Simulated assay, not measured.
Amino acid sequence: MSLSTGELAVTRHLLVHGPATRGDLSDLLRVSPASMSRLARSLVEDGIVAENAEPAPGVGRPRQILSVVPGARHVVGCKLTATRAYGVVCDMLGDVKATAEAALLAPRSDGSVPVDGTVRVLAQLVNRLGRKVPSVDGIGVTLGGVVTDRAVVREGTFLGWRDVDLTIPLRHRTGLPVVVSNDVTALAREQLWFGAGRTHATFGVITVGAGLGFGVVREGVVVEHLIDNGHLLAHAPVDGRGPECSLGHPGCVAAYLNRDDIERRGATGPARVEDAARALGHLAATFAGALQSTRIVLAGEDITEIAESPVMAATVADRLRPGPHETQRCVLDITVAPLTFSDWARGGAVTSIQAVLGAA
């Protein structure tokens, strides 16, 4: 059952920032002490929050500390690729308790992966992972493409899907609430509660792997639908004399960072990494400027080698270099998060945690 607005605010703060006293929460969330007491009592009675005496009290009466009970809820997160489903089961803190994976059915003659077969595979993963925890409270599925209403896959890029509602058949098979999300959007949600969002209300996520992905968080709210699914950023020009991407743009970001474009022209060696690092540096700086945020998260299977190149650091530094009469200085906080498919699945799990608790 979803939490009330007040209960959700308390639970979210404890999840994101850790244990706190009723008094501290009352001040931080701007609610009266009496209201805070009612909210805390309700959450403790529901088993979501525990209240215990401070471990090492000072002089006087020990303070009572509220903290989330990690095992109060468990959810399964699944990441779909073109050929496999990767699953994790997580507790309230997003900690992974077990992982599993399974092959999807081969595509049909039209190139689409069978939906009914995929639902069956997902349900089997949920059953396997559910044996590792007392119970499962929800499911979050992520994939590359465009998803609306956290349910309908309008464009399943790697699965060949169009207008597929994945929630209804999966809910029917499992009896559990289901949310479906673009994989990078889910990663942004995970970062909002357990990563960059702890210190920055507005930030951007860039993923580099099978394709380029973008996530946006503005003032603590995840942007569910980008106007172009990141197309404008992915095809921003870097070098007009550079190689063409698959759409014919000379020297755009995708030409240097999209795995398919790189493999198509057979680019290898240090020069490829340097070109990719330069493109990524320009992309990160441009994205930060557009969002007016100092925090950018770089993630994905192909990110480490590129982000560690000194060429990227030099490119960002050059973009940040002020003019001779400018007094304002900007420093970007760029973090790198290499991802396995289980990490991608964790994004789905965190999305499910938020949905189960009633977060938007």
Results as ranks from 00 to 15, higher is better:
Val223Phe: 06
Leu226Tyr: 07
Leu226Lys: 10
Leu226Trp: 11
Leu226Pro: 00
Ile227Lys: 05
Asp228Ser: 09
Asn229His: 14
Asn229Pro: 02
Ala234Pro: 00
Ala236Glu: 08
Pro237His: 10
Asp239Ser: 06
Arg241Tyr: 11
Arg241Lys: 03
Glu244Gln: 06
Cys245Thr: 10
Ser246Thr: 05
Leu247Asn: 03
Gly248Ile: 04
His249Trp: 09
Pro250Ala: 15
Gly251Thr: 00
Cys252Lys: 10
Cys252Glu: 01
Ala254Arg: 13
Ala255Glu: 02
Ala255Thr: 04
Tyr256Gly: 03
Leu257Arg: 10
Leu257Lys: 06
Arg259Val: 02
Arg259Asn: 07
Asp261Tyr: 09
Glu263Gly: 01
Arg264Pro: 09
Arg265Glu: 04
Gly266Met: 10
Thr268Ser: 12
Pro270Lys: 00
Ala271Trp: 01
Ala271Gly: 10
Arg272Asp: 06
Val273Ala: 03
Glu274Gly: 07
Asp275Thr: 06
Ala276Arg: 00
Ala277Val: 10
Arg278Val: 13
Leu283Ala: 15
Leu283Tyr: 00
Ala284Pro: 11
Ala285Ile: 04
Thr286Arg: 07
Phe287Leu: 14
Phe287Pro: 04
Ala288Gly: 01
Ala290Asp: 04
Ala290Trp: 08
Gln292Asp: 15
Ser293Gln: 11
Thr294His: 11
Thr294Asn: 12
Arg295His: 12
Arg295Asp: 02
Arg295Gln: 11
Ile296Asn: 03
Val297Lys: 08
Glu301Ile: 08
Glu301Met: 09
Asp302Lys: 08
Glu305Gln: 15
Ala307Asp: 13
Glu308Ile: 03
Pro310Gln: 09
Val311Gln: 11
Met312Asp: 07
Met312Glu: 02
Ala314Leu: 09
Thr315Val: 13
Thr315Leu: 09
Val316Ala: 10
Asp318Met: 00
Arg319Leu: 08
Arg321Met: 13
Gly323Ala: 12
Gly323Pro: 07
His325Thr: 14
Glu326Ser: 14
Arg329Lys: 09
Arg329Asp: 09
Cys330Gln: 13
Cys330Thr: 15
